[in-house]
Simulated assay, not measured.
Amino acid sequence: MKTSKTQHHPFPLSQKIANTLQSLREQRPLVVSVTNYVVMNNTANALLAIGASPIMAHSRQEMAELMAFSGALVVNIGTLDSIWIERMRFAIEQANTCGKPVILDPVGCGASLLRTKTSREFCQLAEKLIIRANASEVMALANVQSQVKGVDALDSSESAVIAAKKLIEMYHVNHVVISGKDDFIVNKDSVIKLSNGSPLMPKVTGMGCTHTALTGAFSAIDFDNAGLCATGVLGVAGELAEKQSQGPGSMQMNVLDQLHLLNSRDIEYTLSSEECS
């Protein structure tokens, strides 16, 4: 892939992210999360730390009411079964009715037929969609040959860019966020690569799910740039947190602190990006 020279201080891009973060903190959007048991606490704390308001809702009895005044819906299929599928399907339908963004995290797509089929169904159903996934999940979702080991990606994030563009053509996808050593934000007209974060982040359960949750929060503020803002903010927070961490335990705590403390100067002087073509 052809890329431009890395910009370690891309002020216009960092300014966009910082300004959107400030708006998020002022507006405190409610993010409805139908997410897995493993990460509920992690993602709720991350949303609070960034300045959003999380609600972990699963009952269809209240979903229509909640979606009417929420900012976005996050659907994470990490602990999937027939009951969860029905609840998630109904939640997406209510988000469609209310014109709210749906952020899909197709955890383990490609690892089983159930996960792959369900992920594709939800892509077809959602009318205002952002996908956040690792490379192997993106490729499996687009029916491109991928390498999957459980919920872990064995493909590089860059290798999934073409698959992400295919998903945008196939479904009502505004943009796709591919997580990995480098992160790619892919929309119809552009590809942006962000190269922040830390090697400790994959050693903490739920960092990808946190990425998805933050994308949900930003989608309530700036739908078109939600993935860019969430990726930049989490990557910078992770990079700064690593400097204070001795291992995965302290890393998890320090990422939350950095999400809470992050300011425009941190973003401006830490963000590393490339525009790809």
Rank of each mutant, 00 (worst) to 15 (best):
T6F: 10
P10C: 13
P10W: 13
F11I: 14
F11E: 11
S14Y: 01
Q15V: 03
L21M: 07
R25C: 05
V31H: 00
V34H: 13
T35G: 06
N36A: 06
L47D: 06
A49N: 02
G51K: 05
R60E: 13
Q61W: 03
E62N: 08
A64P: 02
S70A: 15
V74T: 08
V75C: 09
G78P: 04
D81E: 01
W84M: 14
E86W: 08
M88G: 13
A91Q: 01
P101G: 07
P101Q: 10
V102C: 07
D105C: 00
C109H: 00
S112M: 09
L113E: 14
T116M: 02
K117C: 11
L125M: 14
A126M: 07
K128N: 14
N134A: 02
A142W: 01
Q145W: 05
V151E: 05
D152L: 05
D155V: 09
K165N: 11
L167Q: 04
Y171C: 07
V173R: 01
S190E: 15
G197S: 03
V204Q: 00
G206Y: 02
H211D: 11
T215E: 08
S219N: 04
A220P: 00
A230F: 09
G232E: 03
G232A: 07
V233N: 05
V236R: 00
A237D: 04
E239M: 15
Q244F: 12
Q252T: 10
Q252V: 03
M253D: 09
D257M: 02
Q258E: 15
L259T: 08
L261D: 11
N263I: 04
S264F: 04
E268H: 14
S272L: 12
E275W: 14
S277Q: 13
